[in-house]
Design a protein around this nucleic acid. Structure first.
Lengths: 214, 214
DNA sequence: GTAGAATTGACAATATTTTAACATAAGTTG
DNA sequence: CAACTTATGTTAAAATATTGTCAATTCTAC
C-alpha cells in the first residue's frame, strides 16, 4: 500500500506530533500550515508536502484540525498498536530506559530485562525483574515480544542480536556502539550516543574557528 | 575558513571514525575507498566525496593510510580538544551518561552534576558529587565548563537552558523532549529518544503492512 | 447568498545530495 | 624501467529533497 516514504519525512513526523500535542493541551482547535511553520521554524510547504505523502488531512480555507491531525499522525507512526519490549543490558542506561514511564503511555510495555552479570539478576525496575541471559530465548518465544532494546557493550551486541532474531525478534532499538548485520526483515533503529556527542564537538570547533574563538 | 559542510556529511564522520578505529585495532595499514565501502555498505563515491570536503587525505594508486585518516577525522571532529562537561538532571539517564567511561577517553571530562531533588544531592557518580541547582551558575563560571548535558523533564528544560547560556555555556547536549530556543552562537545537539522509538514503530508497522503481517 | 479572504493540495522550479565516470598520478610487477 | 594496475580527486549526471506558486475550494462576514 504505502509507497516508499523517505526516512527524512518519517524523521520529522514525531516532531509534528509533539507540537500538535502541545496545541491540543492548549485547546487549540485548528491550525494552518503557515502558523505551524512559524512555531516549528520550518517552511509551510514542507509541512504540507510531508503530510500529503499520507493523504489530505486539511481543508482549504480552514487549515488542519489539531485533534484529527494528531490522531492521523499517531496512526501513521503505528502508535495505536501496543508493543511488548524487553531490555538486554540492565546497566544504568538499560535501567534509565526501563524506568521511563512515558514509553508506556505510548503503548510500549516493558515485559522483561536481561543481563549476564549475576549481581544484577533479580533486581527490579518498575516491578520487572532482571533475568539471566540463559532465559532469553524461551522468554521471547513465550511472551510475544515485539521489540528488543540493546543496551550492552558493543562486544556482545552482534552475537546477542543474532540470538534475538533467531528467536523471533523483528525490531531492535540498538544503543550498542556497533552496526548490526541482520536480515532485511528486522527493523533496526540505532542510537549511537557517541556519534551524537562527536557531532556536537564538531559544531563547537567549527563555530569557534569561524568566529575567532579559542 | 571552513565553508559550509552539510550536517549530513558531519553525521557520517563518526561512523567513518568507528570503522577506522576497528581497522587500526586489527593493524590494517591502508584501505581504499572501495574496500571501506564494502565494509560500511555505502558507496565508495560517497566516502571520497565526504572526505574531500576537508582535503585530500588519500593517495592515488595507494588508498588511505588508516592511522593518518583516523587522526585527521578526529581533528575535524574536534576530538583533540578536551571538553569539560556537567550534567543537569541526576536521574537514571543522567547517571548513565555520567558513568560512561568512554566519553573520558575521547576527552569529555565530567566535572559536576546537578539536580533539584534534595534526596539526590551529595550522591556521587564516579567521584563527582551531585550539587543543588542553586550552585549551578557560580559553578559554571568558575570551572571552565564547555558543555552542559540536559537530562531533565521537558518542563524545566527551557528555563534551565537560559540559565546555562546566561552563565556562559555555549554547547548543550539536549535529552529533554523539547526544542530549546537559544541564540545562534549556542550549539545544541538534540537526542530525542521518543522520536527515535517512534521511527522504529513506524518502520515496524510499515514493514508489516507491506508484507501482509499482522 | 454573494464577495472576498484564507488556505490547501498539486505541480513546477530550485537546491542539495548522491552516484557515476574518468583523467591523472602513484604503486607494482616482471 | 616500462607496461600495467590501482585508486584518488574532480567533474558531470542523476536522483532526492525542499521551496515556491497557483488554481481550486472552503470559510467568513456582511
Amino acid at each position: 500500500m504505502d509507497k516508499d516514504i523517505s526516512q527524512a519525512v518519517i524523521g520529522r513526523l514525531p516532531r509534528y506530533l509533539r507540537y500538535l500535542g502541545e496545541l491540543k493541551d492548549k485547546n487549540v482547535e485548528r491550525i494552518s500550515s503557515s502558523e505551524l511553520s512559524v512555531l516549528m521554524k520550518v517552511t509551510a510547504s514542507q509541512i504540507r508536502q510531508d503530510l500529503n505523502n499520507f493523504g489530505g488531512f486539511g481543508q482549504q480555507g480552514y487549515g488542519y484540525n489539531v485533534d484529527y491531525l494528531y490522531s492521523e499522525i499517531s496512526k501513521i507512526l503505528g502508535l495505536e498498536h501496543q508493543y511488548n519490549f524487553i531490555i538486554i543490558g540492565a546497566g544504568n542506561l538499560g535501567k534509565a530506559l526501563g524506568g521511563y514511564l512515558n514509553f508506556e503511555k505510548r503503548g510500549f510495555m516493558l515485559k522483561g530485562m536481561f543481563d549476564k552479570a549475576p549481581e544484577l539478576i533479580g533486581t527490579e525496575v518498575r516491578g520487572v525483574k532482571v533475568m539471566p541471559m540463559e532465559e532469553l530465548p524461551s522468554f521471547i518465544r513465550n511472551n510475544n515480544i515485539d521489540i528488543a532494546v540493546l543496551t550492552i557493550p558493543k562486544e556482545g551486541a552482534v552475537p546477542v542480536s543474532k540470538v534475538l532474531v533467531d528467536n523471533g525478534i523483528r525490531a531492535i532499538w540498538n544503543f550498542a556502539h556497533v552496526d548490526l548485520d541482520l536480515p532485511e526483515y528486522v527493523q533496526v533503529e540505532n542510537v549511537h550516543l557517541s556519534d551524537s556527542l562527536m557531532k556536537l564537538s564538531y559544531n563547537i570547533s567549527s563555530y569557534n574557528e569561524n568566529n575567532g574563538g579559542k
